[in-house]
Design a protein around this nucleic acid. Sequence first.
DNA 1: GAAGATTGAGACCTCAATCTTT
DNA 2: AAAGATTGAGGTCTCAATCTTC
Lengths: 161, 161
Amino acid sequence: VNLVTEWLTDAEQRAWRGLMGMTARLDAHLGRDLQERSGLSAADYAVLVPLSESPDGRLRVFEIAGRLGWEQSRLSHQLTRMTRRGLVRREGCESDRRGAFIVLTEAGRAVIEEAAPGHVAAVRRLVFDGLTPDQVAALDQIARQVLARLDEAEASQADRR
Amino acid sequence: VNLVTEWLTDAEQRAWRGLMGMTARLDAHLGRDLQERSGLSAADYAVLVPLSESPDGRLRVFEIAGRLGWEQSRLSHQLTRMTRRGLVRREGCESDRRGAFIVLTEAGRAVIEEAAPGHVAAVRRLVFDGLTPDQVAALDQIARQVLARLDEAEASQADRR
DNA sequence: GAAGATTGAGACCTCAATCTTT
DNA sequence: AAAGATTGAGGTCTCAATCTTC
């Protein structure tokens, strides 16, 4: 049974499978690269970036979750693993006893600073060195449009409850 | 510490974070949608598509892995779960005793045929209804270029061993 | 009750090791 | 030895339930 071509044009179908394939392979490649060269998983790296960009290397859990667009539960599990390996440390929050600060350890800072240049270089080499400014602009615009549709869709789903 | 803007232009960085965010949220949204409406995970759906497109609803394990670009191990674990739920069945191969056929069950076919129209409609609504033919063409071309670079990169890594 | 956060169960993925057949 | 495929261990993600504090 042909399940897809009835609903998407050939060009759309090619673009869709291409996009999904590209991001899947890109994620896999970058993740392996990171792991081999620094011992960090892609998830570790994602969490370390906002922490290292924060002035004092500390953020509330919900701030990290917000910047990454992660669910709290996912982040909490990830932080448990990272704490176990000494990349971050949990600290209570004085002004709001419910909350917790996540603090980048010295070891964590050392690892991310060592890993970042190579990672960004890989992204540049694999993606952006081959693209024209027009293509970069097109990508940015497409991403914004699709994200806006997702916002709409999820807002109207929330209403329905 | 600013880890990214030293190596990517602002436009590139926006496009990169936009693309990654878009695919992450799109995957999450489509996965939840599929799960709610049909009980299938995204991984289940991915496996069922090539099987349902095959003339007799049966493919060798390595054929499925090839079409999806999955590692054999990943697929094998997935097939174990799908077999347990009765979506597919394993059958030995006469002509090559090492191999195995994966056969779509009646239940599996019923589920995928029920799930596919809604899934494709969601993709159309969230992505393609908002894009011009030019944007679709741009996306396709970018995907091809990046995939080609990944092929190069992985080929030269393989040489180095 | 809602917000901030954690936990446990179960599904999923990767890596390395294994087994069988070619 | 290489190809087809499976297995086990350990990391990761989601969902629902929970706990505490606001």
